[in-house]
């Protein structure tokens, strides 16, 4: 089968071809879900973020500039949607906290679907102290393999800023990694 370029697929979607939309997104479906999942730390929330991303992509596809990287564009939308989700979550958690303080019973116990619990727990520990921007920079560079320039395009900041965030993120991750290693060594000694 002849492989169509992303620009051609975009054109077809704009002409109302739904099948082309699926073909256009197929290479990124896993990457988007993983990015959203790591950013939000919750699979259900990540799926909601992806849903929002797909709606935005479909709705604003005419704004995509041909000749530019579709991958960078779609990841930018994902990162921004994940930021929004985190902001909403923070508001919700603050609300729950305030409800608890004034005596209401509010429970927030999200169901976690883990494929590999041990590894997942380690990743979560490593990413715990990272700010959303540091997390996004680290995941784009070390998780998804984007170059510094691509990451700067996605995050809409300078490559210097990407380097700064990446450096901070790796420093924090290393601290957490040392703790995990130390705990593991102690376990082995026992």
């Amino acid at each position: 089968m002849e492989m169509k370029s992303e620009d051609e697929l975009v054109e077809e979607v704009l002409n109302g071809n739904h099948r082309s939309f699926e073909l256009l997104l197929q290479p990124y479906r896993q990457g988007l879900l993983n990015m959203a999942n790591r950013m939000t730390g919750n699979l259900e929330e990540a799926k909601e973020v992806c849903q929002e991303v797909l709606i935005k992509v479909y709705k604003h596809l005419d704004k995509f500039k041909k000749g530019r990287s579709f991958k960078s564009w779609i990841y930018r939308i994902t990162v921004n949607s994940a930021y929004d989700s985190l902001r909403k979550k923070k508001k919700y958690e603050n609300f729950v906290e305030s409800q608890k303080k004034i005596g209401f019973s509010a429970s927030y116990d999200p169901e976690k679907q883990l494929l590999n619990r041990e590894i997942r727990a380690k990743i979560e520990t490593c990413l715990r102290d990272l700010s959303p921007k540091e997390k996004a920079t680290f995941l784009l560079r070390d998780g998804e393999g984007f170059s510094i320039e691509e990451a700067s395009e996605i995050l809409k900041c300078s490559s210097m800023s990407v380097r700064t965030h990446l450096s901070r993120a790796r420093k924090k991750i290393r601290e957490q990694f040392e703790k995990i290693n130390f705990a593991n060594t102690r376990e082995v000694r026992r």
Partner: peptide, 10 residues
């Protein structure tokens, strides 16, 4: 961390 991220891809 790269290894973990690659292994835990969903």
């Amino acid at each position: 961390t790269k290894e973990w991220l690659a292994k835990d891809r969903i």
